[in-house]
Design a binder for these strands. Structure first.
Lengths: 148, 148
DNA sequence: AAAGCAATTGAAATTCATTATCAATATCAC
DNA sequence: GTGATATTGATAATGAATTTCAATTGCTTT
């Protein structure tokens, strides 16, 4: 199951590079591979750490550069939890979603509510706006953390 | 009209300082006064620029420090538009609201939709969370910018 | 396979927002 | 007033992200 998905994502990246006349390098492949391995959002620095374990010579600037490319290619998405560090999550195969985060333990769940999406669109239109996209972050206490 | 509001906000700050055993300094008063003068959200650096015009000797670290205090006192609120700079807006006398921003001209409108708020709470509860607060940023094209 | 050129890389320097340090100064309770 | 201590401004430091640049590499053309 994951194999099929990974193959497809790697294909997409290869096609993206070809289309943009960019080169297919071992560093780019390695970084994408490590990025795909983890399902949760990850920061550039964290990804740099794990990538370094496979190739000690890789530079952190390269990790930052590749994450930018992955976003352009539609494979990654930036998420900003407001702690000063940008994080990246998988975009491909993950439909649009918002985040529900526990302020006690930090656990984050991906959520979607079609009714909210509809109301957001209506709200924007009420002010004459054509809604392009949105971000919604819900913060609360999860079930486990409530039991304390 | 503004006088009454400002007097009250300054009182709140004075009380906050007294309660916390902090001192009432001319710098803190000046920064609060300048902050209250503008209705739109402002960055620490921008506030520093305008404050400097009234007191050339003020340090920017002090502006950062006072903004932190204003948030603690419930007079200011941090907003993060994801451009790497934290901005601050009035909290007192402004009920909770979200933001609708035009991606073309940057204009931002404060919006609230009670129906969305209700659904957010319900959504969180569906996952066993007790919702504490949230942030919602809507991005689109405003009426004027659509006419191009 | 060789050659050439532009894209890519890693290391280090740089930027930008924000925070910490610290000696000098100002505030406020007494 | 006086003294303990909070506050300040200047500056250094931090941390995330970007830029610079010379050396290297990938890819196209022979």
């Amino acid at each position: 199951m994951t194999e099929q998905t990974q193959k497809t994502e790697k294909q997409i990246f290869a096609e993206f590079l070809a289309r943009k006349n960019l080169r297919d390098t071992s560093q780019r492949e390695l970084i994408l591979d490590e990025f795909l391995r983890r399902e949760q959002h990850i920061s550039a620095e964290e990804l740099y750490d794990v990538v370094k374990q496979r190739d000690r010579t890789i530079g952190q600037a390269t990790v930052y550069r590749v994450l930018k490319l992955l976003c352009e290619a539609g494979l990654a998405r930036e998420v900003n939890f407001g702690d000063g560090t940008m994080r990246y999550e998988h975009e491909f195969g993950h439909e649009h979603h918002d985040h529900l985060t526990c302020t006690a333990c930090g656990k984050t769940i991906e959520v979607v509510d079609p009714a909210i999406e509809t109301l957001q669109k209506a709200l924007a239109e009420k002010y004459g706006f054509c809604l392009l996209n949105h971000e919604m972050y819900l913060y609360g206490t999860c079930a486990e953390c409530q039991g304390r």
